[in-house]
Structure formats: structure tokens, C-alpha cells
């Protein structure tokens, strides 16, 4: 029996803070973009915060993750600093990639984050390679490859899972099924009742959980991670959730209904978690208010400091191609 997160004051506060950080960070990004202060594009995971929060709770600092184009939540949950992330998105020298990567490419090897990735399923074999490195070095590290439902149609997904299964590598393939690959619904795209039904074909365990429930995601990830550390090989997890915002800034939401979006907004993972924590006695209303207020203050200060940092320069645009 795993720890009941909502009943544990410290874990409950930390989990709630992580979800609020992701939510507030992305709301700030959306606002800055809308006001023309941020450039490029970005993909928001608002509504999906419980998945990275629950999954990373089961990981150690030196475990690895690979992330996706919708990766702010994974970075934050794995321990990335919001100021450096915001600086990256604002194209500042103080960003994680000195402003050269932007929203889709944050990599923070200090926290085991091997990179968000603009190529769908691009991180699958990379996480498998990191898992191979752990096995070769005889460490107990585990790699978690976050990906969306859309990745499961890609060839790289197949190849990465085949290799991981063959060598029984310590990797968890965590599918954040937000029900749409841009406009393609996963129900249409995959002739499966549950995406985890596919795991059997690869000879690995698979499970489907409620992706809006931190505890459910944590439990499934913990089981998979424990198995991987013990040499039991890879696991596939489908965490069902929902993306409130469009795929990216260009999305006009023509493929789904307002009713559907509203229905899922009613399953908002944050108030759901708060209610459970109150009921279980892990957090008081005062605790909950404090978490929310602290995150807001922290985020405001992160945005201000990031914005004050020097802009990324084009001085080494040509010379930075190769390692020096």
C-alpha cells in the first residue's frame, strides 16, 4: 500500500504546489504571448497537471525523463526552476538553453531532464538509451518517457519500446492521453479500448489510470518504477486526461465541442485534489490558500526576474554550431 498523498501534509502540499506552478506558469505564458511579449509558439498542458505531478513524485532526482512539445509540466514536476524556464521562453541568456531552445526544447540535465522535444515520439528511444546507460553502469536509475497519444502512431515509439522490452531496460513509457493528437481523436486513431491494451503485444505490462488523479498516476508509476529498479523491465502506462486549451496558438478547436471541454473542466485536477486533501485531513483550508498564494508570489517574481535578464544575442549564431 502506497502512501496516501492527500493525507500526508508534506506530500500533499508539495503536490498541490507543483500543480499550481504548472497552471500558473502556463497561464503566465499564455498571457505574455497574447500581449506580444513572447515569441514563437507554445503548447499548453492546462488541465493535465496531475500526470507529471503524480509521476515525478515516484522518481528520484537522478532519475531521467524525456518530455514532449507540451512539456512545461514535466520540467516543473521534475524540479526545473521556473525563472530559468521563463527566461528560456522569453529568449534570455539566463534561460536553460541560453534562450536558444525556447518552449519546446528545455533540457535540464541537473534534474535528469533529457529534454522536451518538438518531434512527436522523438524522446522514446532517447529515454530507452538513458535506461540502457543506467543498466550498463549498474545504477538503479529509471527513465520515464512522457509522450502523448499521438506518439503511439510513430515508428520511433515502436522501435524504442521493442528495444526496451528486448533488454528489459528500466524505462517507463508514460502516455499522457489527452484524447487528441492535435485534431485527431485517439478514439478514432487507435482501434483499442484502452491504449494500454497494446502493451501485451510488446511483452510488457500495461495499465490505464485516471490521469486527473495524482494518487492514481503516482501508484501506477511507483509500481512501474519499483519493477524497473528491481530489473523487471519496462512498463507502459496510459494516464487519461484532457487538454483544455487548443493544441497550439493556431488551434480553433473545430474538432471538439464546447460541451466536451466544459465537461472536462469540471474534472479539474486541482480542486479535486484540494477537496480530497481537506477530507483526508492532510491539508487545512489555510494550508491550501497558502500554497496557492506562495506559488503566485513565486511565479510573479520568476517572471519579473526573467524579464529583466539580458536578451539572447545573435553574436554566436554561427560559431555555436559545433562544440568548443
Amino acid at each position: 500500500m502506497n502512501t496516501q498523498i492527500v493525507a500526508d501534509r508534506e506530500l500533499a502540499a508539495a503536490s498541490l504546489a507543483t500543480m499550481w506552478k504548472i497552471r500558473r506558469f502556463e497561464e503566465a505564458v499564455e498571457d505574455l504571448y497574447g500581449r506580444g511579449l513572447m515569441h514563437g509558439t507554445m503548447h499548453l498542458s492546462i488541465g493535465q497537471e496531475a500526470v507529471p505531478t503524480g509521476a515525478c513524485l515516484a522518481l528520484n532526482k537522478d532519475d531521467y525523463i524525456t518530455s514532449t512539445h507540451r512539456g512545461h509540466g514535466h520540467c516543473i514536476a521534475k524540479g526545473a526552476d521556473m525563472e530559468r524556464m521563463m527566461a528560456e521562453l522569453l529568449a534570455k541568456e539566463t534561460g536553460y538553453c541560453r534562450g536558444r531552445g525556447g518552449s519546446m526544447h528545455i533540457a535540464d540535465t541537473e534534474t535528469g531532464n533529457l529534454g522536451a522535444n518538438g518531434i512527436v515520439a522523438g524522446g522514446i528511444p532517447i529515454a530507452t538509451g538513458a535506461a540502457l546507460s543506467a543498466k550498463m553502469r549498474g545504477t538503479k536509475q529509471v527513465a520515464v518517457s512522457f509522450h502523448g497519444d499521438g506518439a503511439m502512431g510513430e515508428g520511433a515509439w515502436h522501435e524504442g519500446v521493442v528495444l526496451a522490452a528486448m533488454w528489459q531496460l528500466p524505462v517507463v513509457f508514460l502516455c499522457e492521453n489527452n484524447l487528441y493528437g492535435m485534431s485527431m481523436s485517439s478514439e478514432k486513431a487507435f482501434n483499442l479500448d484502452q491504449l494500454s491494451d497494446r502493451a501485451k503485444g510488446y511483452g510488457i505490462p500495461g495499465v490505464t489510470v485516471d490521469g486527473n488523479d495524482v494518487q492514481a498516476v503516482y501508484d501506477a508509476t511507483k509500481e512501474a518504477v519499483d519493477r524497473a529498479r528491481a530489473g523487471g523491465g519496462p512498463t507502459f502506462i496510459e494516464a487519461k486526461t484532457y487538454r483544455w486549451r487548443g493544441h497550439s496558438k493556431s488551434d480553433k478547436n473545430l474538432y471538439r465541442t464546447r460541451d466536451e471541454i466544459d465537461e472536462w473542466r469540471g474534472k479539474d485536477p486541482i480542486p479535486h485534489f484540494e477537496a480530497l486533501a481537506l477530507a483526508a485531513g492532510g491539508l487545512t483550508q489555510a494550508d491550501i490558500d497558502a500554497v496557492r498564494d506562495n506559488v503566485r508570489t513565486e511565479l510573479r517574481s520568476a517572471v519579473q526576474r526573467a524579464n529583466a535578464a539580458p536578451d539572447a544575442t545573435a553574436d554566436d549564431l554561427l560559431s555555436a554550431v559545433y562544440a568548443r
Binding site: 524525456t66 532517447i126 538513458a130 540502457l132 543506467a134 522501435e159
Partner: peptide
């Protein structure tokens, strides 16, 4: 390795990330 060029090169990226 099995026949999996994207897998082979992708895994090499993961190994390179970790100092190999």
C-alpha cells in the same frame, strides 16, 4: 541490436546525454 535504425540512433542520443 534488432533492426531499428531510429531506435539505435535515438538510444545513442540517450547514451551520449549520459556521457557515453
Amino acid at each position: 541490436t534488432p533492426l531499428a535504425e531510429a531506435g539505435i540512433i535515438g538510444m545513442a542520443v540517450g547514451l551520449a546525454f549520459r556521457g557515453y
